[in-house]
């Protein structure tokens, strides 16, 4: 067979010379290699305290957006569910009643909105499909859990914090995506 690389070498079966047989040079060589690694900078980072910066196109956990007055953007049009290749999104629409204008931006809203994070492949097609800028993918991971049912995220888990009641949490949840939505 033709060698695929030029790195292949014939095995050297020659008996060890006296210098090789006393082992000491090899042992000292090995010790110096490990000592070099001892003082080398470690590539590991202390994860929960320090995190690596995410790429600007990173697609993490979903967030249901609100506008500046804290009204939900989603109108339960179902385009995200249609676009979803994994069929992870389920929703039920409802009509906005009088007196609920401060809760929902338009006349129709999602009464139930669930994403099965075990099915989701984080492709971001829902974000692209959404005409109302209501759903986007954040820069957080889906945390692990012991039960499967914990991975079906309901509206409570997905909604962004209220911008007027909890402005700091809102800003944090919005993350670097804030500008990106406006450009769209």
């Amino acid at each position: 067979m033709q060698p695929l690389t030029n790195r292949s070498q014939a095995v050297n079966r020659a008996p060890l010379t006296w210098w090789e047989r006393i082992y000491l040079p090899a042992i000292i060589g090995g010790l110096s290699i490990t000592l070099k690694h001892f003082f080398r900078k470690k590539p590991t980072i202390n994860y929960p305290e320090k995190t690596r910066p995410f790429s600007p196109v990173f697609r993490g956990l979903h967030i249901l957006n609100r506008d500046e007055q804290g009204r939900e953007n989603c109108t339960a049009c179902g385009l995200c569910a249609v676009a979803c290749p994994a069929e992870a999104i389920t929703m039920e629409a409802a009509e906005r009643l009088p007196g609920e204008e401060h809760l929902y931006r338009e006349e129709k809203y999602a009464a139930r909105y669930e994403i099965n994070m075990l099915r989701c492949i984080f492709c971001g097609l829902c974000e692209e499909a959404c005409p109302k800028d209501a759903i986007y993918l954040s820069e957080t991971f889906a945390p692990s859990d012991y039960q499967r049912k914990q991975f079906i995220y309901s509206k409570n888990d997905l909604l962004i914090p209220h911008p007027e009641k909890e402005p700091e949490a809102y800003k944090k949840a919005l993350g670097n995506r804030a500008g990106k939505n406006e450009v769209k």
């Binding site: 490990t34 000592l35 690694h37 001892f38 080398r40 470690k42 590539p43 590991t44 202390n46």
Partner: peptide, 13 residues
């Protein structure tokens, strides 16, 4: 710790 450092890790911290 030494094992970790030799193997380019951080060890128990």
């Amino acid at each position: 710790k030494v094992a970790a450092f030799i193997q380019d890790r951080r060890g128990p911290n």
